[in-house]
Amino acid sequence: MTQKKILFPAFATLFALGIGSAQAGAIDALKKFNTDADGISGSFTQTVKNKKKTQTTSGSFQILRPGLFKWQYTKPYKQTIVGDGKTIWLYDVDLAQVTKSSQDQTIGDSPAAILSNKSALDSSYTLKEDGSAGGIDYVRATPKKNNAGYQYIRIGFKGEALAAMQLKDGFGNETTIRFSNLNMQPKLSRSAFSFTPPKGVDVLSN
């Protein structure tokens, strides 16, 4: 697996903005978002930082809850990740390679679960207000399991609008995702989340 494949938040690393004084309401915004959002679409910019380098990617995403999602990286390379409810398909255009894995085993209670499944928030995380920075109010979601693979997630809102997610994993990778052009009522169908490997690509199983 190439270095760039660590970038998708569901698999490894979804960090660090300065924290200002805590403001009440971020948890309320998160819970309202979790209750109301049945579908989400928009754009994202994702930055992964470790001791050696910083990598930034961008693209678009679609989510239909529960359990369906599509992340399409367009810059600086093209890569598509589709969760169809049973299988996660990772298509790397440059490598002409598709990797498939069990969705339940891959996501578990990872950061991607917060976006794709409404039940994950209460069942897997402890929440607390975590200050403000750059006009964004943050909630810190700490995993209840000690072996979750990451230390915590910060979920940011501007008012009631989802604005950012930040995560620091157990290897010290820090990831920041900024969301934009959000549509909280996209017209999505389940068929949009099906995936068939293109002809001529290698298909690997995890």
Rank of each mutant, 00 (worst) to 15 (best):
D92F: 07
G25P: 07
K75L: 08
L7M: 11
Y125K: 10
D137K: 07
A10V: 13
L167N: 02
G83M: 08
A29I: 05
Q55R: 08
T56D: 01
Y77F: 15
M184T: 15
G159K: 02
Y152F: 12
A141R: 12
A164T: 07
K52A: 15
A37T: 12
G149C: 04
Q97A: 03
A10C: 06
D92L: 07
T80V: 15
W71H: 10
R178V: 11
S110E: 00
F11T: 12
T54N: 11
S205I: 08
K78N: 09
Y91N: 03
T35V: 11
G83K: 10
P198R: 00
T87I: 06
S60F: 05
I19V: 14
K78G: 03
G172K: 14
S116L: 06
K158P: 01
T106K: 11
T45Q: 12
G135R: 09
A24G: 06
I81A: 14
N146C: 10
I153C: 04
Y91A: 11
F44I: 00
V48E: 00
L182V: 01
A141N: 01
N173A: 04
A26Y: 02
T142D: 11
L68P: 02
L121G: 03
T47L: 11
M165Q: 14
S21M: 15
T99V: 12
N34T: 05
I63M: 13
A16R: 07
S180L: 10
N183F: 11
T87D: 02
V201H: 10
T56A: 12
